[in-house]
């Protein structure tokens, strides 16, 4: 299963980017092969709808789980529409976050946690 994590860099030692739509990179981690791929987030400079575009990016990569800091309403809705589970409040390195996810320590979002436009928690 593929997991997409919003990241500030392209390594497992990179810090999680708390923003989803406007994060620097996505780390796509495969929980079966334990391999990962870093993709740069094309949505980072979108004039609007960054969350939607970023969501399309991770969906097209075949991710089934998204891990991030905060998620806005548009991104939350489209990820729900694509049957993707979203975990929020993640911080630390990508490796830490993957471990926390495996240990069931991450909080699953059942509603958006920020307003549109990456303006942080409401």
């Amino acid at each position: 299963m593929k997991i997409a994590i919003s990241s500030t860099g392209n390594e497992l030692s990179s810090q999680v980017d708390p923003r989803f739509g406007r994060c620097q990179e996505f780390i796509i981690f495969d929980s079966e092969t334990l391999e990962f791929e870093a993709i740069s987030n094309e949505a980072i400079n979108a004039a609007g709808g960054a969350g939607i575009k970023a969501a399309q990016l991770v969906v097209d990569k075949g991710a089934e789980v998204v891990i991030t800091g905060n998620i806005g309403p548009n991104a939350f809705n489209v990820l729900a529409g694509a049957d993707i589970r979203v975990f929020v409040g993640a911080a630390g390195t990508i490796q830490n976050v993957i471990d926390s996810y495996k240990d069931g320590k991450l909080q699953e979002a059942n509603q958006p946690t920020s307003s549109p436009g990456g303006r942080g928690a409401v």
């Binding site: 609007g48 709808g49 575009k53 399309q56 489209v78 529409g81």
Partner: peptide, 25 residues
């Protein structure tokens, strides 16, 4: 997915079974 690809305002999203549209965008 062609529609979502050409939309520079990101108003369209291709979900599993339908296209989602965001009129405000």
């Amino acid at each position: 997915g062609k529609c979502a690809e050409v939309c520079v305002y990101n108003a369209l999203f291709i979900a599993k079974d339908r296209v989602m549209f965001f009129p405000q965008l």
